[in-house]
Design a protein around this nucleic acid. Structure first.
Lengths: 186, 186
DNA sequence: GCCATGCAAGTAAATGCTCACATACTGATC
DNA sequence: GATCAGTATGTGAGCATTTACTTGCATGGC
């Protein structure tokens, strides 16, 4: 059985639990049941491994947003589709998504300026919604942050073990209603 | 001028920027314009310094919630008071609050079970609001997470530099409306 | 004189990473 | 199908560097 995917899984778990700086290559290797050297056959450095894993999740999330939001019309429908899609994807690979969620700030410098990060995409959707008078006017950056916060904080609390063992999807309809309420609130 | 407060300020900044594990005692000392040894006159270890700073912010926030929520009646009023109080406190000491916000997950083991953390307090307020029929029924843990997320994600995005140089308070009324909408959404 | 505070140099341990070597796979050649 | 070079993959001991922390000494207020 090849080591690369085992290393990726192990790294994801260790990074999510200890952070990128707190994680050691020894720990990752041990968890993957692989020697430390094996890591360096596939990645130049610990940071490159971390960045690779993160950016994969980041792009996957961006693509998800593009696809799901493009498939329906109207801000309300887009919001519902996005919440549902995020919940489903997170439940399918909780390790990946909690890593992405909890370690976001470590990777700010790497995605900040590519213009295709999830936050910017949501901001754009909201801006259009305001132009089309589907939403009341307001600072799209703040409205996007608030709407996103409804999801991310719930997911974080689940990651912290505050919501029991329920899937995130179990709360999808409640979160959808909350997001839609935030968008219209003023 | 005594070194202790200078070290505290410097540590706060460095921890906020690099995380607890990413921060080095050298960097903290350099930023405080103090030798590394000076740190160990006042704290036993780097971790004790970090925990001390964090728990101070954590207790201060818990006290704030207790005081502000106790001063008014009704969930709506409590929500408004809490949002305003958080914004004001955060603006007054942005370094402290962004450190608290961004490094929360590093300190989970230390406050999780003390029952007086901000999240639990908010959950309690919401639970009472539901009992008194001021709020529609629902899982208080999820509703609390969503309401808190409106604030924390906005604050995070400001910390990431996505909201310009505005004070957090500049968005307080928008956030209040959003939080109240979340509480009532179902 | 005494204690708290600060400094500069130093130490032991840990960490990311390398390297010489071993093994497993691939596919072209006979 | 057997042979064998060439390459990709994995090992584990070890290296240079960094890191948190210590220690002996100087200073200054009371």
């Amino acid at each position: 059985m090849s080591a690369k995917p085992r290393i990726e899984r192990a790294a994801l778990e260790v990074f999510a639990a200890h952070g990128v700086d707190g994680a050691t290559t020894k720990l990752i290797a041990a968890r993957a049941e692989v020697s430390e050297g094996a890591i360096y056959r596939h990645w130049k450095s610990k940071d490159e491994l971390a960045i690779g894993l993160f950016m994969a999740a980041h792009r996957r999330l961006s693509d998800l947003i593009d696809t799901e939001a493009g498939a329906v019309h109207g801000v309300e429908a887009k919001a519902a589709a996005l919440v549902k899609a995020y919940c489903t994807a997170a439940d399918e690979d909780w390790t990946l998504f909690s890593f992405h969620l909890l370690q976001l700030h470590h990777f700010l410098p790497y995605y900040q300026d590519d213009g295709r990060d999830p936050v910017t995409l949501v901001e754009t959707i909201i801006k259009y919604g305001m132009m089309k008078m589907e939403l009341p006017p307001g600072d799209p950056r703040v409205v996007a942050a608030m709407a996103i916060g409804v999801i991310t904080q719930t997911a974080q609390n689940k990651a912290y073990g505050r919501l029991g063992e329920d899937a995130l999807s179990a709360h999808a309809s409640l979160m959808t209603a909350a997001v839609q309420a935030v968008l219209k609130a003023r």
